[in-house]
């Protein structure tokens, strides 16, 4: 059997397609498994990551940002500042992504599902190939979204 193919992220659950004989099944993963899956889809030039709660608590960290609470605090301060820049240009709290670009690396900060995802990307890193690639022949169906993120890992929806 071929490996599952990640096809859609929804809230903290990731829906994967499992090619099983001629059927495609959609499986919803629990929060913990979703975090594990996220590790699989890291870009090759990623050199660090942080996942923060909306109050600034570090949920996950790795690479150069491992246990980097100082950076987490700076980023939380930055997010508080970006909440209201210019109501006429960007409505308050409408900023969905922030990038901080340096010469050799960059940070990308995304807000989703009351969590703050920070990735540090290298511009010079050749990559370790730790990405999940989809087989080119896989046919993707529209995924069925399931409300809530408490679905059991073994729940087979289709």
């Amino acid at each position: 059997m071929r490996a599952p193919v990640i096809c859609q992220c929804y809230q903290m659950a990731i829906i994967v397609l499992v090619p099983c004989e001629y059927q495609i099944r959609t499986i919803v993963l629990s929060d913990a498994q979703a975090i594990e899956m996220e590790k699989l889809i890291t870009p090759p030039n990623q050199i660090g990551h942080l996942i923060l709660k909306d109050d600034g608590a570090v949920l996950e960290s790795g690479g150069e940002l491992k246990n980097d609470e100082r950076s987490a605090n700076v980023i939380m301060g930055l997010l508080n500042l970006t909440e209201s820049i210019d109501e006429n240009f960007m409505p308050n709290s409408s900023c969905e992504r922030i990038t901080i670009d340096y010469e050799e690396h960059s940070y990308s900060i995304c807000l989703s599902n009351k969590r703050i995802y920070v990735v540090k990307l290298s511009k010079t890193h050749s990559g370790n190939g730790a990405t999940t690639s989809s087989p080119s022949s896989t046919t993707y169906n529209d995924t069925e979204f399931v409300e809530g993120n408490n679905a059991s890992s073994s729940t087979v929806l289709a």
Partner: peptide, 28 residues
Amino acid sequence: AISEQVAKLEPENNAPATICLYSGNKRC
């Protein structure tokens, strides 16, 4: 204030950082 806050992220890095805020099709 935003640029000063970002300067705290890597205080040892003297190269200027470019900050980009995205909101739909708008960027600051």
